[in-house]
Design a protein around this nucleic acid. Structure first.
Ligand SMILES: NC(=O)c1ccc[n+]([C@@H]2O[C@H](COP(=O)([O-])OP(=O)(O)OC[C@H]3O[C@@H](n4cnc5c(N)ncnc54)[C@H](O)[C@@H]3O)[C@@H](O)[C@H]2O)c1
Ligand SMILES: NC(=O)c1ccc[n+]([C@@H]2O[C@H](COP(=O)([O-])OP(=O)(O)OC[C@H]3O[C@@H](n4cnc5c(N)ncnc54)[C@H](O)[C@@H]3O)[C@@H](O)[C@H]2O)c1
Lengths: 198, 198
DNA sequence: TATATATCGATATAGTTATACCGATATCAA
DNA sequence: TTGATATCGGTATAACTATATCGATATATA
């Protein structure tokens, strides 16, 4: 196991913390308070924060501004990240025009498609040779996803955010995050049905 | 803890299994094979399948068609689920027109907005009184999300799929699944940066 | 200044999830 | 028909994650 390994659950909590802290700028907050707001255990929150923060003060808690900055440092939000997106259909368009990524200093620099309205996919090579791209976002139909993935990998991209409902084949050193919305919705419905049946 | 409690991780694996099995219809498959394809432990797969299937045969494995049907029964894919969506901006449009939910027998019956192009949000009450809706999908701006959520709850909806980057306040018996895409992307980038730095 | 208290952070414990192991069994090959 | 073997499914173990406990400490209050 890697030295500074942390669990996925932990990483998913960090943006939640950051989001809440936003409301308490210019103040202090205790792990107890934060835990109660987010419906988490107080010790869990304290342990999480211990991993990334300079520490809090007994009786008072954590200095919110400092804590937010520690979180941003830890998650890399203080550094700009660059993404490109391939497939400018409905979903690609939504993501490309979404401003919510800026909060994390993530910028979708260019959008590629086979259609004329966008930068042509053939130009991806030129574009990537001039930019160091952190993430490739795949929003093409599933039968095109592996092709597009290969293209992105050939440009040296090491992280893929994949919305096509298919498992991509990639080398060991490439990270793929599948965002399977249909699976996700089906699980929500499963939960709902189980509760009702209970 | 509930009697038939299963972990979230387990539920997330089930659609992956179903997806792979699609390719092996009219055949048998062993837990070992399935595990290797999906990069999972063979025992884990076997334990997962034991929870939902009629069982496999030594030396042979599981009858794929039967297994698929067991999975569909378990997840409720054999029953139709009904959803409505509120907020027909870019993201709402993408989801509304996406055909991939049909695979799980999930149907988005109607789309509401304040804009004239869609069913007006004021008509939601009439609509819901005639239909038993399983899930409400929220794709409105975040400052409208809680309002819309309350409206959905007032119509008796017990499951919310929320894309607005905000935590919704709901009663105990309502299930909210937050789909925070920005958080998700930021975590992918965090992973990528860690690997590079390693 | 002395005392009470909320919180931190460290350690110990519990609970949950994944893996290892092993006997039983159905199939395939000889 | 017989023996070898891959796989199942149950039990035991390990790994990981979350919670409980407790002494130390900084602040607020008397
Ligand atoms: N729309 C959704 O809400 C949704 C939800 C979940 C998953 N998805 C998945 O996301 C992907 C896109 O969905 P969508 O609804 O936006 O589809 P879409 O058909 O609207 O868009 C696909 C786009 O990809 C482009 N394209 C096709 N092949 C290409 C190639 N080789 N290179 C570059 N561009 C190419 C097309 O021109 C089109 O613009 C699909 O895989 C879909 O399964 C979509
Ligand atoms: N676009 C994305 O890729 C993306 C990604 C992540 C999260 N989100 C979130 O999803 C939500 C929608 O994003 P979008 O990009 O589609 O925004 P958008 O502005 O394109 O669409 C919002 C829609 O909601 C409608 N609306 C506003 N108030 C309403 C109300 N009270 N009742 C009914 N309809 C109402 C508007 O008329 C508009 O059509 C936002 O909360 C956003 O933060 C979007």
């Amino acid at each position: 196991m890697l030295q500074n390994y942390v669990s996925e659950a932990f990483l998913e909590r960090i943006p939640l913390y950051l989001n809440e802290l936003e409301k308490y700028k210019n103040d202090y907050i205790s792990s107890t308070t934060l835990a109660n707001i987010l419906n988490l255990g107080e010790v869990l929150v304290r342990k999480d924060l211990a991993k990334i923060s300079q520490g809090g003060k007994p009786k008072i808690g954590y200095h919110v501004m400092d804590l937010m900055n520690d979180i941003k440092d830890y998650m890399g939000y203080n550094n700009k990240s660059k993404a490109i997106i391939v497939g400018m259909g409905r979903l690609g368009n939504a993501l490309y025009h979404y401003s919510g990524f800026n909060k994390y200093n993530i910028h979708i620099l260019e959008a590629f498609d086979i259609l004329d309205d966008y930068k042509n996919i053939n130009e991806i090579k030129d574009f990537c040779s001039e930019q160091d791209i952190d993430v490739g976002i795949i929003t093409v139909p599933k039968d095109q996803a592996q092709n597009v993935c290969n293209l992105l990998l050939s440009q040296g991209i090491k992280a893929i955010w994949n919305f096509a409902p298919i498992r991509l084949n990639v080398p060991e050193d490439v990270i793929v995050q599948n965002e399977n919305l249909a699976d996700s919705l089906s699980i929500l419905i499963k939960h709902k049905n189980d509760v009702v049946r209970k």
